[in-house]
Simulated assay, not measured.
Amino acid sequence: MAWKKRIASTASVMLLAAGGMMATASPAAADGPCPASRICVYDKDGFTGNRIASASTNSCFFPQDFTFGTIVSYDNNLSVDAKVWHYYANIGAYQLARTLVAGGFSSNIGVPDLGAAYGDLVCMGNARP
């Protein structure tokens, strides 16, 4: 009987230790650079530099409203696509510049000046300029 208690005790300690390691893992390590249910755009490659994060699935934001350069990398953990719209001030119209797909990411988009012009928008879901 004593050996059963020792085995049960040892097994409990090992399970608690393993559970403690999983519970203390940082969210960033588990989910990458952007929190779950958010889209994050970064103004440097490799998910670095200034970051804008949004949890909205049906709205737009102007990247220029923040201390932000151009969209260079992104991580979209939303269930909807986000679209970057370029504003052509000379004709007062928007044109789709890039789609940031739901569940997608890129450490270097490769589109010069994406979202950097005055009036450019990032819209999630069904939102449009």
Rank of each mutant, 00 (worst) to 15 (best):
A93L: 12
T67H: 06
C123D: 10
Y88F: 07
L15A: 13
M124D: 00
D45H: 08
R98A: 02
A82V: 09
Y94R: 07
L15M: 12
N77R: 14
P35R: 03
V84Q: 00
A93I: 08
I91V: 10
M124S: 12
N77C: 07
L15I: 12
F47T: 03
A17M: 15
N108E: 15
T67D: 13
G92R: 04
A11F: 11
C60L: 13
G125I: 07
M22V: 14
L16S: 11
M124N: 07
I7L: 13
T67F: 12
G103P: 06
G32C: 02
W3S: 07
Y118N: 14
K5W: 00
G110T: 10
S56I: 10
G19S: 10
T10P: 01
G20S: 14
L15G: 00
G115E: 06
V80C: 08
D65S: 15
C34L: 04
G46C: 03
K4R: 14
D43H: 04
A102F: 07
V101I: 14
P27A: 06
R128A: 11
D65E: 14
T67R: 13
N76I: 06
V80W: 10
K4V: 15
S106F: 04
Y42M: 08
M22K: 14
A97S: 10
P33I: 03
G19M: 06
M22W: 15
D113C: 08
M14V: 15
Y42N: 12
H86S: 01
F61P: 05
T67P: 05
I7H: 02
P112T: 09
F62S: 14
A8Q: 08
Q64G: 07
A29S: 12
S54F: 02
S106C: 01
P27N: 10
L100Y: 04
V84Y: 05
A25V: 04
I109M: 08
F105I: 06
D31Y: 09
D65M: 12
S56R: 15
G69H: 06
P129Y: 11
N76T: 01
A117C: 10
T48P: 00
L100I: 09
T24P: 01
N108A: 13
A30T: 06
S73F: 15
S107T: 12
M1K: 05
P129C: 06
Y94G: 08
M22A: 15
F61G: 08
N77E: 02
Y88L: 04
P27Q: 12
T99W: 11
Y74N: 00
T57G: 15
R98I: 03
C123W: 03
C34M: 03
L96M: 05
R38N: 11
I109K: 04
G119C: 10
T48M: 03
T99L: 10
S12T: 15
Y74L: 03
A30E: 04
S9N: 11
A82H: 10
R38F: 07
Y88V: 09
P35I: 05
Y42S: 05
D31K: 04
G69E: 08
D65K: 11
V80F: 08
S26Y: 04
A18T: 12
P35F: 01
M22C: 10
A23H: 09
V122S: 06
T48V: 02
Q64I: 14
I109Y: 07
T57Q: 13
N50E: 13
N58W: 00
L114V: 08
S26K: 05
A93Y: 08
M14L: 15
V122C: 07
V84H: 00
L15E: 08
A53C: 13
D31W: 05
V122K: 04
A102Q: 01
Q95C: 05
G46Q: 13
R98E: 09
A23C: 10
